[in-house]
Amino acid sequence: MSLSKQHDLHERRFGRNVGVGVVLVGLIAIVFGLTVVKVTNGDFETPATTTVSE
């Protein structure tokens, strides 16, 4: 039998689950922000390729 919806455990761990959720959202925001900054700063630019002319 699974835990009932009203189980005491859900209430007790509510704050903890919200905290983990906030941390995960924060992590997404940081990775996204870093990517945007790095790309706009040109940190990820590939070296210019030289074309061989005949």
Binding site: L3, H7, D8, R12, R16, G19, V20
Partner: peptide
């Protein structure tokens, strides 16, 4: 598995860690 068996694997209510305990 019953509710009772689940409760044996978790801490009692007063010792249940909150997010602030992990932050501490």
């Amino acid at each position: 598995m019953t509710d009772t068996s689940i409760n044996t694997t978790v801490r009692s209510a007063e010792n249940d860690a909150q997010f602030s305990d992990f932050f501490a």
